[in-house]
């Protein structure tokens, strides 16, 4: 066994992910920000925007569910673990900082995918057709990775007070939802709104979901997937680089 080898570090990241799922799945913030928040936003817009088709709103719900669930767990893990000193335990184990981040990202990705699939099934149960399943699956996987990386990016400030990170997280996440074409179709956005929308990875994922449910999309699907892939790589590399720098400050 070579403990520094890639496959061995991936195995250890998987162990960290299993631990995260066991411990953090049912914490309050995860339930509130990951599940209840998108459901209540969906219901609010369902009742308030009767002129929008159901397929449009359910696509928004799927987008929000993945975005909120994948970013609900990851920002708070480091502050929780820093507070409980378990992060110091991980730091003294033979794992790289990147392995810890990757493990946390795997947990968030799986959690996000799991909840998102429930919302997709919910959409199908409401009578929406599944027109393009492969782009949807690829989009869910890519976007879950991307949003998990965003979640870890939100945890970069080296504080061990979870509420500080949750506040920062809400400040960034909510505006992002409103600029990503979830509730306002991209076609109806003013130029400045569209300029903001193209900067959000959630825009591209929601576009893929609408293509899958309604056959209607703003960008070509290949572009959606390519941009999501680029966002995922940039955010993952960025979060690993930044956490490597800030990790000692948490100890």
């Amino acid at each position: 066994m070579n403990p520094t080898g890639f496959s061995e570090q991936v195995r250890r990241a998987w162990a960290i992910a299993k631990k995260d799922v066991r411990i953090y799945y049912f914490k309050g913030p995860v339930l509130i920000f990951g599940i209840f928040m998108p459901v209540f936003l969906f219901l609010a817009f369902l009742m308030g925007s009767r002129q929008l088709p159901l397929g449009f709103l359910v696509s928004g719900l799927v987008g929000m569910a993945l975005f909120f669930t994948a970013t609900a767990v990851s920002p708070a893990i480091f502050p929780w673990e820093g507070q409980a000193k378990t992060l110091e335990r991980l730091a003294s184990c033979p794992v790289r900082v990147e392995t810890i981040i990757f493990g946390d990202m795997i947990a968030s990705t799986l959690f996000g995918i799991g909840i998102t699939i429930v919302t997709v099934v919910f959409g199908l149960a409401l009578g929406l057709p599944m027109l393009h399943i492969l782009p949807l699956l690829a989009g869910i996987l890519l976007a879950a990775c991307c949003f998990s990386a965003i979640g870890m990016l939100l945890a970069v400030p080296p504080t061990n007070v979870p509420s500080n990170i949750m506040m920062l997280s809400s400040l960034i996440k909510f505006p992002l939802v409103f600029i990503s074409g979830i509730f306002i179709p991209l076609q109806q956005m003013p130029p400045w709104g569209l300029a903001l929308a193209v900067c959000s990875p959630l825009t591209y994922f929601t576009d893929i979901v609408r293509y899958s449910f309604m056959g209607a999309n703003y960008f070509p699907v290949v572009v959606d997937i390519a941009v999501l892939g680029i966002f995922t790589m940039v955010f993952t590399a960025g979060t690993m680089w930044l956490h490597k720098r800030t990790m000692p400050k948490r100890m």
Partner: peptide
Amino acid sequence: MLMGDLYG
């Protein structure tokens, strides 16, 4: 078991 996994 977590420690066992982290130490391979």
